[in-house]
Amino acid sequence: MSGQGGNPFARRMTRNTGVRTLAVLAAMCALPAHVLGASARVLPKEWHHIDVEKLPVFIALVLFGGFYLYLYRQMKAGRSMRLRRLPGIDAVEEAIARATEMGRPVLFIPGINDIDDIQTLAGLNILSHVAYIAAEYDTPLIVACRRSVVLTISEEVVKAASLAAGRPENYIPNNMRYLSDDQFAFTAGVNGIMLRERPASCIYQGCFYSESLILAETGYVSGAIQVAGTANVAQLPFFVAACDFTLIGEEFFAASAYLSRDPTVVASIEAADWLKMAYLLVIFLGVALATALALFPQAEIATLLELLKEIF
């Protein structure tokens, strides 16, 4: 994800794919943790009822919050931000338009996990935009859910989006479907919808497991244009192989910001980019310290390295 304006270094880095290359290089250079795991803890495990072992997560939250507030204020002061193009998200609108032309429905699946999974929440954020566009185009939207809570929230999301688009009639209760809590029974149910109701577009956004390829291949056979998005690394290759467009990891989480263009949401995407920059610096520092420790095995370097591990 990228943003414009503000920090020129971050702007340069996020504009192109350099950041990804750097992240991969840094991760490749990073020494295995067992090389680093020799020294004893520097910080205590607990301090005044605070779990110090969770300090890295706390620091990530504080950094993100700080970056977000700063960027939010910048944006309020009139700074504009631009997101790099995401072909996968552009394809969503195209997919709905195609369904409209063909007079067939759009099928949306917000993953197979329950509402306590952050990927499901991200999927529902995207559903809101998909439902809005579908309502604008007057195209029926089928939502298939594996969990009943997700179904209930999906109903609210589609109802609200249809109302916001000025077409409350586009919310069709019979198109909001709970199929089964069982993974493969759900898969079989979705396959049935694909083959019988022939949706022109299938949009998979959320957490998926082994059913990913079964769904995507059946969608391919039914002739649908398919857009997938997940942060589940093990399933990404299947979606990449079988779908027309795939949102990978962070792209999937940024999709709703990209679709909404809401500056308050877009600011959070740039804040996430800044946080990534901060972690890249920490990775490089860690690699440098570990290399120094390997070359000059001194207690001070080991302590410094351990401290870095405990803080980040």
């Binding site: 295995p32 943790a33 067992h34 795991g37 690394v233 093990a234």
Partner: peptide, 11 residues
Amino acid sequence: SPQLYPYYQSR
């Protein structure tokens, strides 16, 4: 299994 390589490296 590809997901587990990082955890194997980190012991």
